[in-house]
């Protein structure tokens, strides 16, 4: 079944461009020129994704985002913003957007982001249906189904992405991933400019699960290549 995408964007050229690109990956796209109309559209029928411009006439994107999040049904949101900079990003994500793309964007990147969101939603759905798989390594226990991590029996609070990253590593112990591979396989992006998010997440993950982040035990550095999860069989 075609995925339903709602694009709330006041610039008709950009709207048409997005529609064109998403139609190519099998989405049915509905355009709304302002926030109110967009929100009404969303009330009328369910959507798989909302692409939302931050700067809109009337009510702005952030407010729309807030209203969408206040609804009981979860709809993924991809923000489009002409402003760049950390503040806007954080704001966008704090407001509950799933991801954001800054204008001007490459259509390739936009499509990659959209696909990544779909993939994430799908894997979440699959995982909740998955069998009670549990991965254990040393003092670390990952409950895949419940999306819970325990270290020495104590629960570890991880964000969604941190969990995905840890899971990706833990499913392939001993295998070395470059940063670009991780970005591609865990985040679903293949475009430059975001790679440092990988470092940032590895860093935070280590702070949460490693006893001594200076000498990581679980997520190790393979100098000159990348990162790997500890290989119990060989260590």
């Amino acid at each position: 079944m075609a995925r339903q995408v709602l694009v709330i964007e006041d610039d008709p050229d950009i709207g048409r461009l997005i529609k064109l690109q998403l139609a190519d990956i099998g989405c049915t796209v509905k355009l709304a020129a302002d926030g109110l109309r967009g929100f009404a559209e969303l009330e009328a029928k369910p959507y798989d994704l909302v692409i939302l411009d931050l700067m809109l006439p009337g009510i702005d994107g952030l407010e729309i985002c807030r209203r969408i999040r206040a609804r009981p049904a979860y709809t993924p949101i991809l923000m489009l913003t002409a402003k760049s900079g950390e503040l806007d990003r954080v704001l966008g994500l704090e407001m509950g957007a799933d991801d954001y793309v800054t204008k001007p964007f490459s259509v390739l990147e936009l499509v990659a982001r959209v696909k990544a969101i779909f993939r994430r939603v799908e894997s979440l759905a699959n995982q909740s249906a998955a069998t009670g798989q549990v991965i254990e390594s040393g003092a670390l226990v990952i409950d895949v189904e419940r999306r819970e991590v325990r270290l020495d029996g104590r629960p570890v609070e991880l964000t969604a992405t941190e969990f995905e990253l840890l899971l990706h590593f833990a499913r392939h112990p001993g295998r070395v991933f470059t940063r670009a591979q991780l970005l591609d396989q865990v985040w679903g992006y293949s475009h430059s400019g975001y790679e440092h998010t990988v470092n940032s997440h590895i860093n935070r993950l280590r702070a949460k699960i490693e006893t001594n982040p200076n000498q990581p035990e679980y997520i190790q550095t393979v100098w000159g290549v990348g990162y790997k999860f500890r290989d119990v069989a060989r260590s």
Partner: peptide
Amino acid sequence: ELVQDVAQK
């Protein structure tokens, strides 16, 4: 690590 990753790029 960052130096290594960026150099790799």
